[in-house]
Design a protein around this nucleic acid. Sequence first.
DNA 1: TAAATCTATGTCATTTCTGACATAAAGTCA
DNA 2: TGACTTTATGTCAGAAATGACATAGATTTA
Lengths: 103, 103
Amino acid sequence: MNTQKRKKLEEKGWKFGTVQEFLNLSPEENNYIEVKLALSKGLQKFRKDKKTTQAQLAKMLASSQSRVAKMEKGDPSVSIDLLIRSLFNLGMSKKYLAQILLK
Amino acid sequence: MNTQKRKKLEEKGWKFGTVQEFLNLSPEENNYIEVKLALSKGLQKFRKDKKTTQAQLAKMLASSQSRVAKMEKGDPSVSIDLLIRSLFNLGMSKKYLAQILLK
DNA sequence: TAAATCTATGTCATTTCTGACATAAAGTCA
DNA sequence: TGACTTTATGTCAGAAATGACATAGATTTA
């Protein structure tokens, strides 16, 4: 399954796990996407727990509101690298990161 | 600490954790590097357990021997994305991935 | 419901990553 | 030692990620 196809799906708000049943996502692609979405959700949870806005979070991360929106959405233009670096920048521990991955 | 500086250090075979004591790696930079090196080591361990060569692993990953060498070294030109995708491609589970991160 | 605030999407220039190739360096073994 | 195998390093062109901006869409508040 290519990036474009996945992008389309994510754009339409598909949840993976559901998608894997319909389409031929390989287990490894599925794992990758699950990890990415778990990190995305982790970031969003952090922000909501802090009761702050994407714009404010962007400032903390020296990024932009639009980039934060994409991070929280697990947009294809966002890498796992960026998500992990962001979470660490916000003070998350490796231990908590590992737990997020298992969600 | 910038990429160039880190690159130099990694090139010289520095182990981080040691480095953090000497230089001003921030906790988040240190976490990032530790995660990356843990994944690198995980990949190398996989290969050695399978008693195979970098060239053969490269074939499994549809990559090149040189890229595999860099992955195992945690070279700055290698992203965490690539390491995670590679490990999943080789059949690693999310659970095992999470354990690697805590090493 | 109108204004204000917040989130999502599209696009772009620049930076970084990736696979590949060449070749150097290190290790193995006859 | 010298051939052979394996690993490491440098470089490059093409691909992907990143931050930023503009703006659309959604939500909240007065």
